[in-house]
Design a binder for these strands. Structure first.
Lengths: 214, 214
DNA sequence: GTCTATATTTCGATAGAC
DNA sequence: GTCTATCGAAATATAGAC
């Protein structure tokens, strides 16, 4: 009801090479399960969304879901993979330590902004179900995937970064999510997504401030 | 484990008149239940926190909880009341329409910042369990309490407010929460809460921008 | 690949003794 | 005000036919 204005399953962006393992043609049942789950996880939250509900809305039975996913958490993990497929390793320097330099943050956030805006639903879902994702990581599952929040904490614990920059980083990231949230609580007049992108960039840069003196 | 650096149950601030109905002396069992629940709702989320767990950590049995609260949701509602007791009606103009003027936002956010920082846990809990709170409101409970998000949506749907200001408002609010989040993921050196407050003010004002031309 | 059962578990909530 | 014991509901997950 709230999220009907969002784009549907815009997983693959205008650049290739983001295909996920196990996700073949775009309209097999597995993908449709994920699409429905994504909507429900945003609307009601992961915990309060039952498999019966997902199956019902999809026109199949619960048991059919278990043919495609071995558990409910497995569905959440698949959506997690979708998200990381979008981010790629281009952002947040998961390999190196490029993100340790606050000078590079404005450009990085610009990049992140585009990807998050183009795939709002995934990021809104991740934000709304942070507890569920952390529980998943705590139980040791979700191998081979670093979370966004893992990189987030790495920066927060880097002694080379000043408290001011840490606050800026944390606030900028949250501000971005707050900007995404606006697309659900409002009827965006026409396709003024570009205007929103500009305003969001403005807000994020406002948080990050001037790298030099102030 | 994560939230042990947070202050414990700082419900009543340095100004009086925030007592809640049904909350008498500060250390009766009812209050202790709420304190434990607050911690667990932050750490594991509302849904994944069982009453057995709350009771165990408190050294009583499940049934004892039901003497003080008539349901699990009732515990959540009580914490909701705690939060609104803090906010009072001074902020966000729940009665009038004072918050409709973007000119007044910087001062309002300064006020909000202090209250949120002094009672981080309540606001972090609210943010982390947004789905649970919305579900509560959807089911018609929580009478007599307007939610923060209700006022939030009112602003988003006010046609007199420009999209830029709406984005700024939404981002500023989220940025504030992002700033609170920093207190959980980091060991704040000493009691540098005042320094954090300054940096947060800086960040929020950065989002809100100049009211005049730009 | 999808169905009809059914197994298993956990949780919220209640009854009644003390 | 707290306890023991239990009920009932709902959810995840599985077994096996088709």
């Amino acid at each position: 009801m709230d999220a009907e204005a969002l784009s549907k399953g815009a997983v693959v962006q205008d650049h290739g090479a983001v295909a996920q393992a196990g996700e073949t043609s775009p309209h097999d049942t597995g993908e449709r399960i994920l699409d429905v789950a994504l909507d429900l996880f945003i609307e009601k939250g992961y915990d309060k969304t039952s498999l019966r509900e997902i199956a019902e809305q999809l026109g199949v039975t619960k048991a059919a879901l278990y043919y495609h996913f071995k558990s409910k958490q497995d569905i959440l993990m698949a959506l997690h993979s979708r998200m990381h497929g979008l981010l790629g390793d281009s952002i947040l320097g998961l390999g190196g330590g490029a993100s340790a330099d606050p000078q590079s943050w404005p450009a990085m956030f610009d990049d992140l902004l585009d990807k998050m805006l183009a795939n709002r639903k995934l990021f809104l879902m991740h934000d709304r179900n942070r507890a569920a994702f952390e529980g998943m990581h705590r139980e040791g599952h979700d191998e081979a995937h670093h979370d966004i929040e893992a990189e987030f904490r790495r920066i927060l614990n880097d002694p080379a970064i000043s408290l001011r920059d840490k606050v800026r980083f944390s606030c900028a990231q949250s501000a971005l999510l707050g900007g995404l949230l606006i697309t659900t609580g409002i009827d965006l007049p026409d396709a003024s997504l570009d205007e929103l992108a500009d305003l969001l960039r403005e807000a994020v840069h406002g948080v990050l401030g001037q790298p030099t003196g102030e």
